[in-house]
Amino acid sequence: MRPPAEAIGALALIVTAIAFVIFLGVEAALLYSAWRFRASRVPGLAPQITGNRTLEIVWTGIPLLILVVVFVLMTGTMREIGTSVAGGSTPAQMKVLAVGAQWWWEYRYPTSGGDVIVANELHIPVNTPVDVDLETADVVHSFWVPEISGKTDMIPGKTNHLRLYAAHTGTYSGQCAEFCGVEHAWMRITVVADAQGDFDRWLQAQARPRGDASAGAQGEKVFMSNLCVSCHAIRGTDAKGEAGPDLTHVGGRTTLGAGVLTNTPQNMRAWLADPQKYKPGSLMPRVPLSDADLDALVTYLEGLK
């Protein structure tokens, strides 16, 4: 199968072509009459024509026909790109739950050992139809990765479905598309399409609790003794907060704050020192920390691969 976005693109191309012809037709008629029938070229009164029934029927009928054709084409595309839940033609080979929260994302991979929870970076295997269940923790969000999906809203009290399909490995970026409050703009989406083997390894790694943290022992202490622990979870430690993204493997992500910064030690430090500076309005507050504590935290968090 081809990615949904490609199927939509093919349909859009046909529609655009039709629209373009209509557009050109009308514009040409306007320009022609503006030139041919301008007052200086028409002596005396214009002929007082009041209408023409045949013409009316023609230009009611033809658009109607065009639209019928477009409608039929559309149903084909809908069938092609539908999720398996919505009667799509190809069954999904994988399922994942995406939860939108003001202003970050949580993804849950169902596995035999329970859900694997990750945040802000969705990995999927390449060339595999993936069905995403969409839910929200608070307000309405909308999931959209232009190159590999259409978009579907996340509505409170409802589970929606979306089909993802990436034809090439690589990173795709997207955007929360429904206005969801102050930082709607920085609710960016990162989807990484891996070769199947890489994906399996990645998922296994994500399933594990945080690894050896001896290098960051000092940072872990800071983390546990500050507010951080009340909002974030790091599996394998006492941190079980749910208000913010899971940080068990935060060091391995490419971005911070749902896309506002690339994940480098400097940026991590800057983010922790004052998230509001980069993402004003974000629900992560500025936690006052000494320079030494910050350094320790950065070492710790970046070590959580």
Binding site: Y32, F37, A39, A46, W59
Partner: peptide
């Protein structure tokens, strides 16, 4: 809802085309 929305293009098109047809063959003062 999709079908109904597309249908609106028909009466609207009737308007657009009638305006254009009014201009064709007239004596246009811009």
């Amino acid at each position: 809802f999709s079908g109904a929305s597309m249908l609106i293009a028909v009466p609207t098109g009737v308007k657009v085309l009638n305006w254009t047809a009014t201009m064709i063959g007239g004596r246009l003062r811009f």
